[in-house]
Design a protein around this nucleic acid. Structure first.
Lengths: 239, 239
DNA sequence: GCAAAAGTGTTCATAGTACACCCATGC
DNA sequence: GCATGGGTGTACTATGAACACTTTTGC
């Protein structure tokens, strides 16, 4: 440790060889029902790279951080530009900055997002394709590692936060909600116990409406906006 | 949304007006027993700024990210250079990048660290002073907000991870461990129940040694290195 | 009627909490 | 002895898992 650093936040740009660029990328999760109509899987959109490095490979949607925008705004903007999507749930995941993760030095601030079924605007965007999160191809850069970490956070957070909200429409049945949990956790849940747990949590308010069409009609619920479960702590106030 | 971004990770540096610099800072926590010898408080080292902006104010230890080092390495290096400390526990906290958080555009990758009692090398470093985390002065930049978030993470994580390890020497009594939890959580814990919970967790291995000196001798324990509690998920493999 | 999903009840195991109590040491 | 913290026992409560059972619809 003989090297000395310049003082942080002092004027004077680093030398040209020290150039470090800041990118922002987002892992966007949503659920998709398979054609067979029983299984539901976690899927995410990827963008095919049109330039080197890793031309032709699939990568997370993202872009360069603009000097005039904050990190959150950059995440929203870049994912809208590359995929046309505007997720309701968006949260910072992690900053990746290994020296060799790209030919040039890039620090990526990665976000993760949840998309409700009604927010999916599929179709018209070029070079975007949806992939099963459990069966990804080899992605550009360290993006496989990044998606793996995002999936871990998703599974972890679904246990103590009410993020399933970010994947459902305004009104939903308990079976809808349970399906979300089952898809994320990758295992079946007891309908009876699930009902009681979620009812006792106080996060749901029952409506007078029912969903009919098959067998006994199921009551529709909506999320109680008043309840804020432990989420991001003090940083939540900024949103 | 009329603006178009260049493709991420493509060559070609941004224009000079787009210059964004990357800094790395660390919130270092440790515990200190007050003179009265009963209460223990969470303290952290701050560095007095010797240049504008915010000259004379206290700030988190940190420095610029070097193009040849990863983020973790930069955190270790900068906190060693500014404080002389080498914490055993170091983990990324969050990336702060609001446009107006500094006169020039700076994205700070913030880490948080835990220092064991035997790792504190107090004294010889200039412009470093320890502060009670619960009673901080007004700090430079957005560092008050950052410390607040780090404290929230500390309190949150002590509940499901065994990070108290990062604040204790190799061998410790259950009273030592309980004291750590009480200082972090800010409330008293029942010694009897605390003992059972931590014994049943399987994270501790009892030694044959006892700490004597006051009343009945207390058995010394050490952490079971084999047990890895839920911590940072897949990212842990990189350490 | 019958299948199937909605919804209720009951039982058991486990984890946390409160608190009474005994044990071993310094003084 | 006695104060004090180390350490054990026990009863109560909350929570989750397992699973039997009733209800209401479509066909």
């Amino acid at each position: 440790m003989t090297r000395t650093a310049s003082e942080p936040h002092s004027p004077g740009a680093p030398a040209e060889t020290d150039t470090i660029r800041v990118a922002v990328s987002t892992v966007i999760f949503t659920l998709r029902r398979l054609a067979g109509s029983d299984a539901v899987q976690v899927v995410l959109p990827l963008v095919r790279r049109t330039r080197d490095p890793h031309e032709g490979q699939w990568a997370l949607p993202g872009g360069w951080l603009d000097a005039t925008e904050g990190l959150d705004a950059a995440a929203s903007r870049t994912l809208a530009e590359t995929t046309g999507l505007a997720p309701s749930y968006l949260e910072q995941l992690y900053a990746f900055g290994a020296v060799d993760r790209s030919p040039t030095r890039v620090v990526s601030i990665v976000y993760w997002a949840l998309l409700r079924a009604d927010e999916i605007t599929d179709g018209s965007v070029e070079n975007v394709q949806w992939f099963d999160a459990a069966a990804l191809p080899e992605l550009a850069f360290d993006h496989n590692e990044i998606v793996g970490y995002a999936l871990w956070r998703l599974r972890n957070k679904v246990g103590y936060s009410r993020i399933a909200h970010g994947l459902l429409a305004d009104e939903f049945t308990l079976a809808d909600l349970r399906e979300v949990y089952e898809a994320i956790l990758g295992r079946r849940l007891d309908p009876a116990n699930f009902r009681r747990q979620v009812e006792n949590s106080g996060t749901l308010i029952p409506t007078d409406r029912f969903r009919t069409g098959s067998h006994r009609p199921a009551r529709l619920y909506r999320y109680n906006q008043d309840v804020e479960l432990a989420d991001r702590g003090p940083l939540d106030a900024r949103h």
